[in-house]
Simulated scan of single mutants.
Amino acid sequence: MSAATAAAPVNAEQTGRRVEEVLERLAASGDPAAAAAAEELVRSLMDFYGAGLARILHLLSSAPGEPAAPLLGDELVASLLVLHDLHPEDRDTRIARALGSVREHALDAVEFDEKSGTLTLRAGEAAGGCGCGSDSGAGAREAAEAALACFAPEVRAVDVQTAPKGPTLLQIGTAPTGAR
């Protein structure tokens, strides 16, 4: 594998959708044997790569220090580990890691509804921001959804609530001359 091939960006979510589309096309082709063979091929490859990933994690966990730490922060590697149910971090830790990767939006996890897969987030002040809620729109939700797709795919929907506005600033000063 060349360095250029190894560095090619891969989006796990798009790849998963592509695999599903191909399997659906084969199923719709009317050849049940071909569709079954394709599904068996995908399962076999998943098992093979899952076993390889498990071995890598095992070998890394026996090494001194924290050699797996950079891997857990990588979106592609994290999504593969989650896909194979091998990610060593729990869901809440992975959610925090995902939200930490979108620092331009100040988002805090409020609640996760396991039944619906909905994560409720609170949008606060962005780093250096004014707290006026400008970060709480679709941009924050889209950034969170993209990061969560890699680190915590069990989150199927994101609800962003704006942080309550603080009290109105009341200026107290001297009255203009003649206003008394």
Results as ranks from 00 to 15, higher is better:
residue 85 D to E: 14
residue 84 H to C: 09
residue 29 S to C: 11
residue 84 H to D: 02
residue 177 T to A: 13
residue 79 S to N: 02
residue 131 G to S: 06
residue 129 G to L: 08
residue 55 R to I: 07
residue 30 G to K: 10
residue 171 Q to D: 04
residue 96 A to H: 12
residue 15 T to N: 06
residue 78 A to Q: 00
residue 66 E to R: 14
residue 71 L to V: 03
residue 102 V to T: 08
residue 179 A to H: 09
residue 63 A to S: 09
residue 40 E to I: 04
residue 35 A to H: 06
residue 15 T to S: 08
residue 124 G to Y: 04
residue 155 V to D: 04
residue 127 A to M: 12
residue 157 A to W: 12
residue 88 P to Q: 12
residue 45 L to H: 12
residue 94 R to H: 03
residue 48 F to H: 14
residue 111 E to C: 07
residue 131 G to K: 07
residue 45 L to G: 10
residue 140 A to M: 01
residue 133 G to I: 13
residue 123 A to V: 07
residue 59 L to S: 11
residue 180 R to W: 12
residue 177 T to W: 11
residue 14 Q to A: 15
residue 146 A to K: 10
residue 114 E to L: 06
residue 124 G to T: 09
residue 138 A to E: 15
residue 87 H to L: 07
residue 41 L to T: 15
residue 92 D to E: 13
residue 31 D to N: 15
residue 97 R to F: 05
residue 178 G to V: 13
residue 13 E to K: 14
residue 68 A to H: 02
residue 135 D to E: 12
residue 2 S to L: 09
residue 39 E to A: 14
residue 69 A to M: 03
residue 10 V to Y: 00
residue 98 A to L: 04
residue 98 A to R: 01
residue 96 A to F: 07
residue 137 G to T: 15
residue 25 R to F: 08
residue 79 S to C: 06
residue 174 T to N: 07
residue 69 A to S: 12
residue 22 V to Q: 11
residue 106 A to N: 04
residue 144 A to N: 04
residue 134 S to C: 14
residue 123 A to M: 04
residue 161 Q to G: 03
residue 116 S to W: 06
residue 92 D to T: 15
residue 50 G to C: 08
residue 30 G to C: 12
residue 163 A to L: 08
residue 160 V to H: 01
residue 89 E to P: 09
residue 22 V to A: 11
residue 174 T to W: 03
residue 12 A to Q: 02
residue 14 Q to L: 12
residue 111 E to G: 08
residue 74 D to W: 01
residue 41 L to I: 10
residue 24 E to A: 15
residue 158 V to D: 02
residue 105 H to Y: 15
residue 71 L to I: 04
residue 56 I to P: 00
residue 64 P to M: 00
residue 72 L to K: 01
residue 156 R to K: 15
residue 89 E to Q: 15
residue 77 V to W: 01
residue 148 L to F: 03
residue 99 L to C: 09
residue 68 A to Q: 03
residue 61 S to K: 14
residue 119 L to W: 00
residue 122 R to I: 10
residue 169 L to V: 13
residue 164 P to G: 09
residue 86 L to P: 00
residue 131 G to T: 12
residue 127 A to C: 05
residue 91 R to E: 08
residue 150 C to L: 06
residue 33 A to P: 00
residue 153 P to D: 02
residue 49 Y to R: 10
residue 103 R to D: 04
residue 25 R to T: 09
residue 51 A to L: 09
residue 116 S to G: 08
residue 153 P to H: 06
residue 16 G to W: 00
residue 112 F to P: 03
residue 158 V to S: 06
residue 74 D to F: 03
residue 22 V to Y: 08
residue 128 G to R: 09
residue 13 E to R: 14
residue 21 E to C: 05
residue 50 G to D: 04
residue 66 E to C: 07
residue 86 L to G: 01
residue 154 E to A: 15
residue 139 G to E: 02
residue 139 G to Y: 00
